[in-house]
């Protein structure tokens, strides 16, 4: 269970996250959606205790992250692809984390096998492709067998087999009764993976609903998402489909503009 209670984060005059309030419940994959710059990553960083909120707080199993006794055994997180030293092997990276959580060394080999990195575990992690780096990050998240998992864009850089593997992994983690919060830009992927959705825009909560309910609002989940976030996109390209149509109507067909 993750409880986000009025989280607010300001950077100078900009409010990145603005009084955000939602719960992530166990036994389901909760998708975390929002346009670029909507505050998803900042929110996840505040849940993990990496960034200090200006107001509000986030609780995991009823405690702030810093108050967890063995954090890796309660929360697993993949926030960025590369959160390891390039000169260290995957096995050493995980062994260090295992030591911090008093986990048996055998657990390192277990998670390496789970993510399919056993054969390259002794190689310097700096030589890994983005997809392998993602797998190492997921291995670190699974290391302590935590009940709460946070994944920020986990399918980045993965091949189709990897994307499917992540989808199945997320679903099985949720089926085991764990709390899974998953952010992604890929709405189609979200439609296949998530049960529940938390949608934010400009740091504010736009929707906290089931995938089924949100999909029912439009022709597809994507359409429903655009309708929801239309007014809350921080960065919109100038060549918006609608705008282009309006411009086009001013040019009479068959006539040279000069």
């Amino acid at each position: 269970m993750i409880e986000v209670k009025g989280l607010t984060k300001r950077y100078g005059p900009n409010t990145a996250v603005d009084g955000l309030r939602f719960d992530v419940t166990p036994g389901a994959v909760t998708g975390f959606l929002g346009p670029n710059g909507s505050g998803k990553s900042t929110t996840m960083r505040m849940i993990m205790g990496l960034d200090r909120p200006d107001a509000g707080h986030a609780l995991i199993a009823g405690r702030p992250y810093a108050g967890l006794r063995r954090p890796l055994c309660e929360v697993g997180a993949l926030l960025e692809a590369r959160t390891f030293h390039p000169g260290r092997s995957a096995r050493a990276h995980l062994a260090a984390l295992a030591a911090a959580a008093d986990l048996p060394a055998a657990r390192v080999d277990e998670v390496l096998a789970t993510v399919g990195l056993s054969d390259v575990a002794g190689r310097r992690a700096g030589t890994y492709s983005l997809g392998m780096a993602q797998r190492l990050g997921i291995a670190a998240a699974l290391l302590g067998d935590p009940g709460v998992l946070l994944f920020d864009e986990p399918v980045n850089g993965l091949d189709p087999e990897g994307v499917r593997w992540i989808r199945d992994l997320m679903r099985s983690l949720a089926a085991e009764g764990r709390t899974v919060l998953l952010s992604s830009h890929l709405i189609s992927e979200m439609a296949l993976t998530a049960d529940h959705l938390v949608v934010i825009g400009q740091g504010r909560l736009l929707a906290d609903t089931s995938v089924r309910e949100l999909t029912g609002r439009g022709r597809s989940l994507e359409e429903a998402f655009f309708a929801l976030t239309e007014s809350a996109s921080a960065y919109q390209g100038t060549a918006h489909p609608t705008a282009r149509h309006e411009n086009a109507s001013h040019i009479e067909p068959g006539r040279n503009p000069q």
Binding site: E74, S89, L97, D145
Partner: peptide, 26 residues
């Protein structure tokens, strides 16, 4: 959900120090 039982019981500092030792020598 935490089926993994920690091997030993130690202080947060001791665990952090073991982690740093592994990181330094690896």
């Amino acid at each position: 959900m935490t089926a993994l039982v920690p091997t030993v019981h130690s202080t947060p500092f001791a665990r952090a120090a073991r982690m740093e030792w592994i990181k330094l020598r690896s």
